[in-house]
Amino acid sequence: MSGEQVYRAPLHRRLRPLYFLSPTLLILLSVTLFPLIYSLYLATHTVILTNPMLSGWSLQDNLREVFLESPEYWESFATTLILVVTVVSIEFVLGLMLAYFFYNNFTGRDFIFPFFLMPMMLTPVVVGTIWRFLFNGEFGLIAGLLKAMGVVNYSILNEPSTALVGIIIADVWQWTPFMLLLMLAGMRALPTSPFEAAQVDGASRFQIFRDIMLPMMKPVIVIAVLIRMIDAFNRTFDTIYIMTNGGPGRVTETLAVMAFRSSFEYFFMHQGAIVALSMLVIIIIMTKVLGRFMAGPRED
């Protein structure tokens, strides 16, 4: 084939996908790469906005300060872990159960369904506000109900032992609908013939659910749980900010809240950067491990 003229498409035609991708890539690179580099700079230097005299390379000092000198980071780490695991488990179980009921045909189903989805549309800040006032010890509805049961002026969010429970309730309230939506979509996409076959084989309703339906839904479950996990870890900020701002003490101060307060309240920029970067590392590990653990070997 020597000496043969090799055809080259015009350059502008070969570069077309690059043109199409470039605005998106430019934007995404600038909001990930630059912050990453900048955060790395902050993390390795002493940067305290209120005290510009202190500066210079101090990675070891910074790491020691955040991870060793005080238990705050590890407290927040534990709080975040408890929060994520609890809300995702509860939301998954509730969402799956509700989806199973909505999978049935009954009159009024399509009418009531959108009402069940409402919480996930609401602004998280407003959701936090509603629950803050529901839990308010003086006039809140829940405190009122507790009072009727004999508990006087109990403020769930003001007690260190129950504040996190209050946050969890608000999160479950807002995001269970998301699980419901995904689970229901997953169920409706399943073929029904395996269920019919199992029925003919004499399986009970529960056995069909556990042995046939759940395994078939695995891909959707994996995705839904992963999405919720990432969001619960990264984005449960607004509600906490509004409901407790990390308090009382630090019992509801998750890593995200800690990073925010370090940077924007105390202006210890290097601390905020280290906490934030540690979140990035955790989320990468979490998705890798969980993705592999839950997805198992690729099945397609």
């Binding site: 084939m1 003229q5 090799v6 055809y7 498409a9 035609r13």
Partner: peptide, 17 residues
């Protein structure tokens, strides 16, 4: 589809590009 080498001529007109 782009070709790797060769020519396509339709009605006497080279349309490869």
């Amino acid at each position: 589809e782009e070709l790797t080498s060769g020519d396509v001529v339709i009605a006497g007109r080279n349309v490869t590009a």
